[in-house]
């Protein structure tokens, strides 16, 4: 198993209920996972925990046989090799596009850096924009820079937090296709969080639906559609499905 999240619990210090309650998920290499849920369902928390920006109360996180977190270990975010695309992109406003992308490449040699920069700029089709500053780009371009920056250091896993929420509807469709191409071309395992089912259906190999910090459905997009189509069923029954897919809910 490439990524393993086992029995993870987490609650924010100012909240009474758990943001995540015994969350378990296993991901294969190269898979695109979508975490679907309403706001407050705990979906962004999963990403923050994986990235190391929050510390779980209990559980275990493993990527490629390396333990990121268990009761003895807490690997700092900078040591995890996980890329993240933030909801508001968080492009450094005082750095150019090229400098933003080079930011995470400090371990590479100079020639190597230059080559990688060109590669990722080509990947997101922004070859001529290296010298621009983030505020000189459109929303869609900014998002592609954010993806390029996260992909550049060759992370094991890339996390995307609501990648389409800041784009207008017209752009969303186009960007969705682009993103799918980029992710598949780069062959990076990825998890993205969204509240929009359409995003999940188009992009994901597998969908995880969250409700109140617990998994409510896991499966291929087409399976989710099927569960809705069965006559007389309001809520898809997922219990058997979950067990079949080795997803434990306690």
């Amino acid at each position: 198993m490439f990524v393993a999240i086992e029995d993870v619990c987490f609650s924010y210090s100012n909240a009474e209920t758990k943001a995540l309650d015994n969350f378990t998920l296993k991901i294969e290499k190269g898979e695109v996972i979508s975490i679907l849920g309403r706001s407050g369902s705990g979906k962004s928390t999963v990403l923050r925990l994986l990235a190391g920006l929050e510390k779980p109360e209990k559980g275990r996180l493993v990527i490629q046989d390396e333990v990121l977190f268990d009761n003895k270990t807490f690997l700092q975010p900078e040591k995890r090799g996980i890329g993240m695309v933030f909801q508001d992109y968080a492009l450094f406003p005082h750095l150019t596009v090229a400098e933003n992308i080079l930011f995470g490449l400090f371990r590479m040699k100079k020639a190597e850096k230059k080559k990688r920069l060109q590669e990722v700029l080509e990947l997101v089709e922004l070859q001529d924009f290296g010298k621009r500053y983030p505020h000189q780009l459109s929303g869609g371009q900014q998002q592609r820079v954010a993806i390029a920056r996260a992909v550049a250091p060759n992370p094991h896993l890339i996390l995307l937090d609501e990648p389409f929420s800041n784009l207008d509807a017209e752009l969303q469709g186009k960007i969705r296709e682009d993103l799918r191409d980029i992710l598949k071309k780069a062959n990076i395992t990825s998890i993205f969080v969204t509240h929009d089912e359409k995003d999940a259906h188009i992009l994901a190999d597998r969908i995880v639906r969250l409700k109140d910090g617990r998994i409510d459905f896991v499966g291929r997009p087409c399976d989710m559609l099927d569960t809705y189509r069965q006559p007389g069923m309001q809520q898809p029954s997922t219990k058997g499905f979950v067990e079949k897919n080795l997803i434990g809910i306690n």
């Binding site: 920006l53 975010p77 995890r80 993240m84 933030f86 968080a90 450094f92 406003p93 995470g104 371990r107």
Partner: peptide, 25 residues
């Protein structure tokens, strides 16, 4: 905190992040 978080997921520690991201901003 997003810029700080972004910097850390790009491999920079708290102190380096402070000098390269927080201070200039």
């Amino acid at each position: 905190t997003n810029f700080r978080d972004a910097s850390r997921t790009l491999g920079l520690g708290v102190t380096k992040t402070f000098f390269k991201v927080d201070m200039p901003m």
